[in-house]
Design a protein around this nucleic acid. Structure first.
Lengths: 331, 331
DNA sequence: GGATCATGGCGACCATCTACGACGTCGCGC
DNA sequence: GCGCGACGTCGTAGATGGTCGCCATGATCC
């Protein structure tokens, strides 16, 4: 691999001049510039980014810390980040935390050691990891989930409103014992979606008995178990609102196994889409999030923060939309 | 951020000794070692990996070049790579080529400039990109798709056999005008799956008329269009084998739009799973690939090649399995 | 007493960027 | 027309933060 010295020698100039031509920071004699350009082409020279990174003490890497790319929700998000990052000259490093703060901490450490240019994080709930990044001066954007006690750029959706819509929709469909399967207590979206559910019940004069609420883990197995637990308790629900896509699938599987028909036996609505939800029978009603747009927006915020570190942090809240399909329509 | 010099000063040793303690390459007096450890802890010192990378002239990054993480097939693969990479101390950089050789070339350039430790690639069909990596001495592993004319580590599946099974299954189910929607001509898996289909037809005394074959793009829209084209041609098929998951979904959507029932009107079988295929009605018959395992295996091969560059390249072929569900069972 | 071995420090090195200084040119003013 | 100052441009050299080869030193063993 050719170095800047090889180019300099061939173009009969100093390495500094080559650097100047390539980075355009200061003007150089057009003659020399063309000589340098030619030498670069002839040698197929590409600057060594590791050396450049060391000198500039920042890289062109972004860490994207999420719980699991396997979840289509995060997949689309990551794709949105990557598309924007790529255009802006950044590479995306994928970090699956599996909701484990310890694993998340490892990735944060790596981001710091590797001097990554920025981090986009869907926090597993422990604000300490984000705090470390802030203290080190690494630009951070929170995506999907808020980070408590940290005043940082955030891209969220109107979770409470979405959950409210979903619950209200079930109420209006004539369901009256509506259960909620929500996520881990430490995760902000789980709390917000639960609150939206509770407020919708209250607004319609229903009680919100704790017996109809299950805290679970945002996973398929958790959704299955929570559904089973709801069914096994006395006075089972006639509808269920599940706070994310995987738990919705888990709940559905439980209902299939028990031979309970949807929506006649139990109405089901989920938060966030599953791929090809329209092909599933009964087709699945959901609160749909603009996941790709979520990723794009976070990436744009991160890029801006890197170029303009002192800008006050902003929070962008994107809208959810209710997608009514068959699983929540009783008649 | 503390540097190695700060640690050295506090521990009353030379920077070299600190380095030795941290990397364990040569023995150090236990007394000094503990002094160093303490200083490291007190200063919360973390080696600057950029500097380390420059000196060692290699990083701890892997590029994973695929067409699209949005495709669940690749998602699971990437997850497999990441899990193994993370344990081995590598970070995974995500690269979506969208089947575009030019975009792929950009990522290859980035991998070279960033001195990445290795590349796992599902080639879009242009062997030139892989050749550049090989020439630069960057370890490469081909995943899912072969790279023609390159003798490199590869992890593949038995595409021909899988396609053969799928086609044979349709034949045995009584279908006799079986169409095939395959992928881009340049992609190895498309050719292999087509061949498996053709051989199965031949083995059972059927002709393999070109009128029943469509080359498409491995995307949903392409599958839709190919299905429409098959239906609009004279003498339409009574069954279809689609060579990947997205095209299968596209074909299904076309059939739904035309009001053709599956499997009564047309039998359908796809290659590779879609998530929650069992929830789709009719549930989808597929040739299932061990996608996560594919990623894991490729990652392990890459790790081995990095530590042992002169090992002869090996090709691992994983097995596909036929998952018979409702969409291919006529009666 | 000499050879061997373990171990620590010095300094070069990785490839690039950039502060600083030097040099040349041009313009303006006397 | 000459001198001085300002500005533009180029090269030298140092800095970035670790790693590692080489050499010196001291201890140990035969």
């Amino acid at each position: 691999m050719a170095t800047i010295y090889d180019v300099a020698q061939r173009a009969q100039v100093s390495p500094a001049t080559v650097s100047r031509v390539l980075n355009g920071r200061s003007s150089v004699d057009p003659d020399m510039a063309t000589r340098v350009q030619e030498a670069v082409r002839e040698l197929d020279y590409r600057p060594n980014s590791v050396a450049r990174n060391l000198r500039r003490s920042r890289t062109t890497l972004w860490a994207v810390i999420i719980s699991d790319v396997g979840n289509p929700f995060f997949t689309a998000m990551v794709r949105g980040v990557e598309d924007v990052g790529q255009r802006a000259g950044y590479s995306v490093v994928l970090c699956n935390s599996d909701e484990d703060p310890a694993k998340e901490a490892q990735y944060v450490t790596a981001a710091l050691q590797d001097q990554m240019a920025g981090v986009i994080i869907s926090s597993s709930g422990d604000p300490a990891n984000v705090r470390r990044l802030i203290e080190a001066g690494t630009p951070v954007v929170a995506i999907d989930r808020q980070v408590s006690g940290a005043n940082i750029d955030s891209v969220l959706v109107d979770n409470e409103h979405g959950a409210h819509m979903a619950t209200e929709h079930l109420i209006e469909g004539g369901y009256h014992r509506i259960a909620c399967i929500t996520g881990p207590r430490k995760v902000s979206t789980a709390a917000q979606r639960l609150r939206g559910y509770q407020q919708a019940l209250k607004a319609h004069g229903f009680g919100a008995p704790a017996r109809l609420v299950r805290y679970s883990d945002y996973r398929e197995e958790g959704g299955y178990a929570a559904m089973a637990s709801l069914l096994d308790a006395g006075d089972p629900p006639d509808a269920v609102f599940a706070a994310n896509n995987l738990m919705t699938v888990g709940a559905l599987e439980c209902l299939v196994d028990r031979g309970i028909t949807v929506p006649a036996g139990i109405g089901v609505i989920g938060f966030d889409e599953i791929p090809w939800a329209h092909l599933v029978r009964p087709s699945l009603s959901t609160v749909s999030q603009p996941t790709y747009e979520l990723g794009r927006t976070a990436a744009m915020l991160l890029a801006e923060r890197i170029t303009e570190p002192d800008r006050p942090p902003s929070t962008v809240t994107l809208q959810t939309t209710l997608k009514v399909r068959e699983s929540s329509l009783r008649s």
